[in-house]
Structures are given as structure tokens and as C-alpha cells.
Design a binder for these strands. Structure first.
Lengths: 107, 107
DNA sequence: ACGCGTGGCATAGCATAGCGATGTATGAAT
DNA sequence: ATTCATACATCGCTATGCTATGCCACGCGT
């Protein structure tokens, strides 16, 4: 998966990964890797700045967890984040539909 | 359709629009607008630089057409462009499949 | 004669997002 | 001891799409 492919769709992935329950960055990356069958393997320079960005935007909130000396920042969706998630899902479906219409049949 | 949504997928749209027959910039934009049911409405500052970029990359070639004083630059796919189109189609399908797997069911 | 809408192209400048590289630190396994 | 996986952070780069602006030609209405 090359660089620009993800652009503009990363937020949806991150929000989706946090939909069911809170998680820390590394776990989010694992979830996405697993669910996508290795297609999405977020580099750290992508993952962490994106989480910071979403937190700054008020879609996520975080707290430190300190289980056995291992410091982790655990993120969870805010109310605003949940609303954003719904909107991004709609946006994605619209986008995918339009792409399908232009590009041709879906596999 | 917001700004970053398109990022990384514009090339595929442009190449697709030129798959059947050559066309000039404005006509390409019309085609995409029509096929996507208005979802894709490329601003000029997006369209023309992108065409230049694809031509520089050797995926497109162009010639001027001068019908009745109306100057148009008509683009067509090169051999390399056709190969790129096939690859981008595959990439898109992979990406869409992975998104679907992560985000959930398709509309 | 003038403006306006549509067709048609171009570019400068900007904002932003994702990524590579690098650094730090802990615990488990070898 | 060393290496690997876990875990987070950030600097700096690059690419890309968009806004704004400018140019020109044609046809239509007033």
C-alpha cells in the first residue's frame, strides 16, 4: 500500500479501530493490520502524529496507563468522535460508490 | 467531496477517463462529473496540474487541437499509461477491499 | 457597445497529511 | 549480553490537491 493511497482515509480507520473499545496506539495498529489482512501496516511516523491530531481535534481523548512499568497512552472516542465516525463512514461509502461508478465493476 | 478524500486516487480517475478515447481537459472533467453523478467535480487547479504531472511522468501525451480558434490540449494514454491504469485499478480494488474489511459492510 | 456566462487553459502559493529516520525506554527471550 | 518485540515521540521532507487569479474566445442579451 503506497503513500498517498491512504491519504484522507486514515482518520476513518483510526476511529473505526476505537469504535468497540479504547485502545493504545500499538494495539490500534495491530487491529488494523489484522482486520485488513496485512494491507494496512501503519508506520509509527504515521500512526502517532495522527492520533495526536485527532485528539487535538477533540475526536479522541487519552489517558496514560501504567501496567507493570509499560507506559501506554490509551485512546477512546469522544462524543464528537463518534459523530465524526458516522460522518466519515458515510463519506467513505459515497466516495467508494462514486469511484466504482467511474472506474467500473467491483471485484 | 472534501479535499483529501481524492488524494492518491485522482490519477486513476484521469487515466480511466482517457481509457476509451482521447479527450481534452475540460471534457475529462465533464466525463468524471457525469459518470460520478456530480460527486467528482474537479476544480481547474486540480485538473490541469494533474494532467501536466501525468504527462511529465510519461503516462499521457498531448497535442494541441485548434478547431475554429478554440485551442484545446487533447490528451491520450501512452503504452506506459495503459499499464499504469491496470496497476492503479488493481491497487484501488485492493485498497477498497481492505477498507471494507476494516470499516464494515458495504452499502 | 458592453457585460456576462460558458468553454478552455495555466500557474503561483498554500495547507496538509503521511512517511522515513531517528531517538528513547522497558521487558522477554536466547 | 544481546536481540527482539513492545511502545511512544518528533523532525523534516515530499507530494498533492485546492484557492485564487489571470488570460483568451465565443455567443447571447440588453
Amino acid at each position: 500500500m503506497n503513500a498517498e493511497t491512504l491519504k484522507g482515509h486514515l482518520d476513518l480507520l483510526l476511529l473505526t479501530a476505537l469504535e468497540a473499545h479504547p485502545a493504545h496506539g500499538y494495539a490500534i495498529a495491530e487491529t488494523l493490520r489484522a482486520r485488513s489482512e496485512q494491507a494496512f501496516d501503519l508506520p509509527e511516523g504515521t500512526l502517532y502524529p495522527a492520533l495526536h491530531r485527532l485528539e487535538r481535534a477533540g475526536l479522541l481523548a487519552s489517558r496514560w496507563s501504567d501496567q507493570s512499568g509499560r507506559r501506554r497512552r490509551v485512546y477512546h472516542l469522544t462524543a464528537k468522535g463518534r459523530r465524526a465516525l458516522v460522518k466519515r463512514q458515510r463519506d467513505w461509502l459515497d466516495f467508494a460508490r462514486a469511484m466504482r461508478a467511474v472506474v467500473g465493476v467491483q471485484a
